[in-house]
Amino acid sequence: MTNGSGVPTGTPLADPPLIEMISEDPVLRNTKLIAEAWDCDGLNQVGAFPHYGGRWAEWNGRFRDTVRNFIKGMDGWAGPFASALCGSPDLYASTQAPETDWWSTNSGRRWRGNRTPTASINFITAHDGFTLADLVAYNDKHNQANGEGNQDGENHNNSWNCGEEGDTQKWNVKRLRQRQMRNLCVALLVAHGVPMITMGDEYAHTKRGNNNTYCHDDPLNWFNWEESEADEGGFQRFMRCMVNFRRSRPELLRSTFVGAKDVQWHGELPDSPDWSEASRLVACTINDGAGNGLYVAFNTGHTARALKLPKWPGKVWQRVADTSQLAPFDFLAADEVMSPKELARAQAASLMWSADHHAAMLPWSALILESVPESAVEAMKAPEP
């Protein structure tokens, strides 16, 4: 705690007895324990929370901030974003802490490193702060309804309104917001670690820019079933497809950190990543160890990019998701919205480009491709109606 003037007093316990008791409690032995490893006075223990043999996972606040900043197109976030996609090994695998991390280089040193990606609870939004929809619709908090003169709530949101604050009828702004929500969703669900989705984000619930709604028992906090069922922008379908996709892909369900044999980084050309301060493109291939894998790319700049895809023996790349496409073509999967015949046609159309190992990305978009046998090029012959 501080002494009232912002000067810290006292020393956090490196071996807190309460946390140890919770960790060893026989009733809680088989439960999942998750720490919000920071407090209101500045102590941040992310990466080195007293976890007692891995009993505790941690809300990864650094993942949240990194993804928000990179997806909205800020300088200097390409490298940290790549690390976040890999489960944050700099936080959970490495025993070395930055000199600025007081806790990890002093009392918390014993708890740092030698962990797995499952220590990281990845999230974009939580119970407080902006919802996913508001994260792409507001630059500033709008907490007047809380009765505290808009003084409460977090001021540092790493949000971007996509060109206009709040409600808008401008189609280009609304379309960009839909893309950005999908981009954030892709980043969360392809990243190694444990994803956490806040209730309501799956249908783009809005709190009208209020980022501190603890005091409201009204539609700001209620789950809107009618809006969820309507799914007018197709975002809930996209979210559902992404969740199912993650569950089905061994490349994304890893209990150990990836190495050079598991993931390769790319730029506009294969094996040529751009880690410069101004980089807006992060792309990688992730293999499953059995000759198959995924190509994942994020373009968070304001210009389109033409990508040359890596060549894998006997394989071509087929589109799974492209956030620049209108629903339902943003995610290619057969369901109640897209019939198997429509899916086959859309996949055939995507192979027109990726079969030649090329892909185009619009500004602020994300792309997922999967490797398929070269014989799949035959699917370019559209099925008979």
Rank of each mutant, 00 (worst) to 15 (best):
F298E: 03
S324Y: 12
C241N: 15
W265Q: 02
P50S: 02
N3M: 02
R64P: 00
I71G: 00
P98H: 07
H216A: 11
N3Q: 03
V136D: 02
A119W: 01
D335L: 07
P17Y: 02
H358L: 11
L18A: 04
S350V: 07
N158R: 09
L33M: 05
Y138P: 05
Q264C: 10
D140N: 13
A304P: 12
I368M: 11
M380E: 13
S255W: 08
E384Y: 09
P16S: 02
Q144N: 14
A349E: 14
S107K: 00
E165W: 13
P89W: 09
W103A: 00
S339V: 12
L135W: 08
A35I: 00
K261V: 05
Y52W: 04
G129D: 07
V316I: 15
P89M: 08
S350F: 05
G234Y: 09
G289D: 07
I286N: 01
T2F: 10
F81T: 01
C40H: 12
E277Q: 11
L220M: 15
G200S: 11
Q180R: 08
W111E: 03
F70V: 02
F331Q: 04
N244A: 13
V337H: 12
A119I: 05
L33A: 01
W353N: 09
K174N: 12
E165T: 09
N143H: 13
L220Y: 15
T100Y: 06
A35R: 01
K261I: 03
P363S: 11
T198Y: 15
E251M: 11
N157S: 05
G289R: 06
S228M: 13
L188T: 04
T31F: 05
T198G: 07
R109G: 04
P328D: 12
V296D: 01
N224W: 13
G113L: 10
C241A: 15
V258Y: 09
Y138E: 06
M361I: 12
P98M: 05
K170C: 04
Y52C: 00
C284G: 02
A290W: 04
Y295N: 03
Q144Y: 15
D322Y: 15
C162T: 07
L253V: 06
G108R: 01
T125W: 05
V282P: 00
P383V: 11
N210W: 10
G233F: 08
G293V: 04
F63I: 05
K311V: 14
H358F: 06
R208Y: 15
Y214I: 14
N69Q: 11
A82Y: 01
E36Y: 06
H142Y: 14
L281G: 02
D25I: 01
V46L: 04
V316E: 07
P117M: 10
